[in-house]
């Protein structure tokens, strides 16, 4: 990908420090969707065959369900998700003033449960949390990603970028080695994508269920035989934030389907 490096270096001169060498310029950004075969694309495109839509429907039911000591549903504060949640997922992870750090959509849902509904947090990768975040993110389907624009997020985006560039694990590979330098090539027959975070939570055929972006990042880390970061750790949040800022302008696809 020497070609992209040259373009990125040229853009650096023109537009300033927005794009570092090796990063993918905006007009070359492509969702994982564009790397899939026709059958998997068709499965994602048709809501009646997209298995992720079952989770979206579960999420819709949970959205309207009163719970906890406060006896409140998400809908009691936020009303109709089709309007109140449109575009929200395209801005996450977002800076939380009280915590002075970015929080993911999953973490926001659990903060609402703790602070406004007085119920216990939902565990990462639990069906209910995936369903709620799929339902909320689905309201942003087609909305262009703008996460990371808030200047308060800059140090966290930078942390995520550093992690993306860092070689790690027994195989000593960095995310950038595959996802910036070698997308469109094949790793043992599987296409390497640009690692765009546009579809999460998404239905992965290999998992046979919906999964979060953190699950996906952890499996790439295990793939290079690195110690994966814990769910909700500052490192995974920073990586997710960097990936979202790196995907600026791409439309959200939740719930996507991937092989």
């Amino acid at each position: 990908m020497i070609f992209w490096r040259a373009i990125a270096a040229a853009m650096l001169l023109v537009t300033g420090p927005a794009l570092l060498a090796g990063e993918i310029p905006p007009d070359a950004r492509r969702s994982g969707y564009s790397f899939m075969g026709p059958d998997t694309r068709a499965m994602q495109d048709d809501d009646t065959s997209n298995p992720g839509m079952l989770f979206v429907l579960d999420g819709e039911a949970l959205w309207g369900k009163k719970m906890g000591d406060a006896g409140k549903a998400c809908a009691d504060c936020h009303g109709d998700a089709a309007t109140s949640m449109k575009g929200v997922a395209a801005r996450y992870p977002a800076f939380d003033k009280a915590l002075a750090r970015p929080v993911t959509l999953d973490q926001r849902i659990n903060l609402c449960r703790a602070n406004h509904q007085q119920v216990t947090p939902l565990p990462y990768e639990s069906r209910d949390l995936l369903a709620l975040s799929a339902y909320v993110a689905h309201q942003s389907r087609g909305v262009a990603i703008t996460a990371g624009d808030d200047p308060q997020l800059k140090p966290f985006v930078d942390q995520g970028r550093d992690l993306f560039m860092q070689r790690e694990g027994q195989l000593n590979l960095a995310c950038t080695n595959c996802h910036d330098d070698n997308f469109d090539k094949r790793l043992a027959g599987a296409p390497i994508t640009q690692a765009q975070p546009t579809g999460y939570p998404l239905y992965r055929l290999e998992w046979q269920t919906l999964g979060s972006i953190e699950r996906r990042l952890r499996s790439c880390m295990s793939g290079v035989r690195a110690q994966a970061y814990d769910y909700g750790s500052p490192e995974l949040v920073a990586l997710e934030l960097y990936l979202m800022s790196r995907a600026r302008g791409l439309p959200m696809e939740t719930p996507a389907v991937r092989p």
Binding site: R167, G169, L171, N172, D181, A226
Partner: peptide, 16 residues
């Protein structure tokens, strides 16, 4: 990108 197959030190966050 080819790993060093006989190296066992100086690596980052190697899995347990």
């Amino acid at each position: 990108i080819m790993p060093s197959y006989y190296r066992n030190d100086g690596l980052v966050r190697v899995g347990r």
